[in-house]
């Protein structure tokens, strides 16, 4: 038996919104310690890794490991039927072909149950090595979203250059070019840890897709090292994270 109750549906809505543009279907791997997800987008350019620890939930029970293959569009439709302040319980028996989502209003006077058919998804799991990033930048998530949006109107590629002086985003296309530089401030809203300067080029479309996770967190962490994927990490309160990895563009 698997059963997990969240005090507010808003958190689940934000998580699904952060995933569903990049993944149409995905498997939630549920174990005693919590819920994990790992999946590549259809083009195998990026990878999403999510963790929700069991202490994120008001109630959590997972008798044996269970994988719940879900269509995220369908899940999103079900979540639209709920109010943000409803409590939500996700449950499934051990050998399930359906998952149940039960919503309870804040005053407990309304309950609503939905069943979603599970999908049997054959998902490849990759081992993500511990990486010592040469540059780690923590910045306001809203600022990162704004920069990604502004960059993608100029060019398909975004160059990110990070050094002790700051982090610089550049895009250059037919209509012209854009450069945005953020320096570390005494206010502490942009925090840079730089061992070695790094410059890498990425597909702006994917960066913009990652910023769907902005409502989850005030801050976003960006990790860069030469010749490895970019890390864009949004914490989920104190209970987990969504990490996006994006393969760099390389010289042809």
């Amino acid at each position: 038996m698997f059963e997990a109750r969240l005090g507010s549906t808003t958190l689940l809505k934000k998580i699904v919104d952060a995933l569903r543009e990049i993944l149409s279907q995905s498997t939630l791997d549920c174990s005693d310690s919590g819920i994990q997800l790992q999946a590549m987008d259809n083009s195998h350019v990026s990878l999403v890794s999510m963790l929700l620890q069991n202490d994120c939930f008001e109630k959590y029970r997972c008798d044996r490991n269970i994988s719940l293959g879900l269509d995220l569009k369908s899940l999103s439709k079900v979540l639209k039927c709920a109010s943000g302040d409803d409590a939500v319980t996700i449950s499934a028996p051990d050998k399930a072909d359906k998952v149940q989502l039960s919503f309870e209003s804040a005053g407990k006077e309304r309950t609503a149950d939905y069943e979603l058919r599970l999908l049997n998804l054959d998902q490849e799991h990759l081992g993500i090595p511990e990486t010592d990033y040469s540059c780690v930048v923590i910045m306001p998530a809203i600022e990162f979203a704004r920069i990604c949006r502004d960059m993608t109107s100029f060019s398909e590629s975004v160059v990110i250059a990070c050094s002790k002086d700051g982090i610089k985003f550049s895009a250059s296309g037919e209509m012209g070019s854009a450069n945005i530089k953020l320096s570390q401030t005494s206010k502490g809203d942009v925090d840079l840890t730089v061992e070695e300067p790094v410059t890498l080029s990425f597909a702006g479309r994917y960066l913009s897709t990652f910023t769907r996770a902005t409502p989850l967190s005030e801050k976003v962490k960006i990790g860069m090292a030469a010749d490895v994927p970019l890390l864009v990490e949004y914490p989920i309160e104190d209970y987990g994270y969504i990490r996006y990895y994006l393969a760099p563009k390389v010289d042809d």
């Binding site: 590549m40 195998h44 350019v45 990026s46 990878l47 490849e124 799991h125 990759l126 081992g127 993500i128 090595p129 590629s157 080029s201 597909a203 490895v228 994927p229 990895y245 994006l246 393969a247 760099p248 563009k249 390389v250 010289d251 042809d252």
Partner: peptide, 14 residues
């Protein structure tokens, strides 16, 4: 000229 690399080429298959 740059080309997009594939994410799975950076991580090990489990």
């Amino acid at each position: 000229k740059t080309k997009q690399s594939n994410i799975s080429s950076f991580f090990t298959k489990k």
